[in-house]
């Protein structure tokens, strides 16, 4: 394998660079996916039928906690990647673990929020608005859930195999994914919750 030692560990092999580039393209597709969900959300937002409106069911406290947890996790995974670049395996695993715990906390609050919605009569079937609301939030939540497992696998691999060009590459790509979910959440927070509560 050809190695380019002038680059960070995760970029050193040809395949690593391809993986990172390919993942960026994948994120482009993900932007379209969430973009479509947002466009549909804006279309169906006011079509509440016999179900509740956003202003009636949204509560600021759990949403703020979720936002805080997820934004912090984006910061800690950044620290994790920094630790990886200075070859501090222990710190990296610690920061990645903190990230996943914060993600788990986010997911817990989101599940709590969903149960709350169903109790308020805002289940998937209530109206077009609740259908798209739960689908958009659920798609993001499913991504976070997937990320938790993925992140866990990566931590296990780093722990066992150490920081190699391969594990570093995987970790870096995972961090891109995690940051992306954070960006999506910022849009959800601004254009679904805040706009809905106004």
């Amino acid at each position: 394998m050809k190695m380019d030692n002038t680059m960070p560990l995760e970029y050193q092999t040809e395949q690593s660079r391809l993986n990172i580039f390919g993942f960026w393209v994948f994120l482009g597709a993900e932007i379209m996916l969430f973009g479509t969900l947002f466009a549909s959300f804006f279309t169906l937002e006011g079509r509440t039928g016999s179900g509740p409106t956003g202003a009636e069911i949204f509560e600021i406290t759990p949403v703020l906690v979720e936002t805080f947890l997820l934004l912090t996790s984006s910061f800690t995974i950044g620290l994790g990647v920094h630790a990886m670049r200075i070859a501090n395996k222990k710190a990296m695993i610690a920061f990645f673990s903190i990230t996943l715990i914060l993600g788990l906390g986010f997911l817990g609050f989101e599940i709590f929020e969903f149960i709350h919605y169903v109790h308020e009569g805002a289940g998937l079937q209530a109206s077009a608005f609740t259908s798209i609301l739960l689908t958009t939030l659920g798609t993001h939540g499913a991504h976070v859930t997937f990320g938790l497992f993925w992140g866990l696998f990566i931590i296990l691999q780093v722990k066992k195999r150490g920081l190699t060009p391969e594990t570093a590459n995987k970790s870096f790509i995972f961090s891109l994914y995690w940051h992306f979910l954070d960006v999506v959440w910022i849009f959800i927070f601004s254009f679904i919750y805040l706009k809905g509560m106004m």
């Binding site: 169906l44 039928g49 016999s50 179900g51 079937q125 209530a126 077009a128 608005f129 259908s131 798209i132």
Partner: peptide
Amino acid sequence: LFGSNFFTTTDGGM
């Protein structure tokens, strides 16, 4: 499958 209302003609579906 799940009875959501995206494209239906009731409950706001479009």
